[in-house]
């Protein structure tokens, strides 16, 4: 092939490629699936690649198992987790300072007796009711005695579920301010993995099982 023809051939190739390329970039491509296939969570501890499709389709998880604020059967797309679980959110305890628990409403308006909650308290003794943490130690892990968090949850949620008064079992934000994003994700993912006994689990010691993408 002569040099002139070689050059002509390349000009034709360039024009065809340019037209095809512009067409491919400018024409609408297939819309991304309504439900994400995979998600990349960017974190300071190393990115996490979450296979959304496998968790929803293969493992049979429902949307509400993770998107807990979504209304059941709603066609609305799940919102951004960060809308509630801020990066620096404070997970305020339900009890104590800044907590949402209203002792007066529970004791006077709803008519609960002291011993309904302070279950070792003798109302006739005239003494101050004992503190829950006198027996239920914070962070304790004793088979014979519930730790403080479990004791509160059991006490409050049990009564609310029984009486049908909100907040109920899954309405964490009804009593607490939402926890910060990292804690929410860790709690959600790890607790589920531990419950089903599959996938990365085990808490902080096994960060590299998820983080590293």
């Amino acid at each position: 092939m002569s040099l002139k023809n070689e050059r002509k051939l390349i000009y034709v190739v360039a024009i065809i490629c340019l037209v095809v390329g512009v067409f491919c970039y400018s024409s609408p491509t297939a819309a991304p699936p309504e439900s994400p296939v995979r998600l990349m969570f960017k974190t300071v501890g190393g990115n996490v690649l979450f296979d959304h499709q496998t968790h929803s389709a293969t493992y049979g998880l429902g949307c509400l198992d993770c998107h807990h604020d979504q209304e059941a059967g709603s066609a609305k797309l799940p919102g951004d987790c960060t809308a509630c679980h801020g990066i620096d959110s404070k997970h305020v305890p339900a009890m104590g300072e800044n907590g949402k628990f209203n002792h007066e409403v529970h004791g006077q308006d709803l008519g609960l007796a002291c011993s309904d909650c302070h279950h070792e308290y003798d109302e006739g003794s005239g003494a101050e009711p004992q503190l829950c943490s006198d027996c239920h130690e914070p962070g304790g892990d004793d088979d014979a005695m519930l730790n403080r968090q479990d004791a509160f949850h059991k006490q409050c949620i049990g009564c609310h579920e029984e009486s049908g008064i909100t907040p109920g079992k899954k309405d964490c934000a009804g009593c607490h301010e939402p926890r910060k994003r990292a804690d929410a994700f860790h709690g959600q993912c790890i607790s589920c993995h531990e419950d089903v006994g599959a996938g990365p689990a085990g808490g902080d010691a096994d960060c590299k099982k998820c983080h590293g993408f």
Partner: peptide, 18 residues
């Protein structure tokens, strides 16, 4: 990868020639 890949390849060839 479909149409997106064709776009990348063709634009790369055309722009390299230009």
């Amino acid at each position: 990868y479909g149409q997106a890949a064709v776009g990348v390849v063709t634009i790369a060839i055309a722009s390299a020639i230009i």
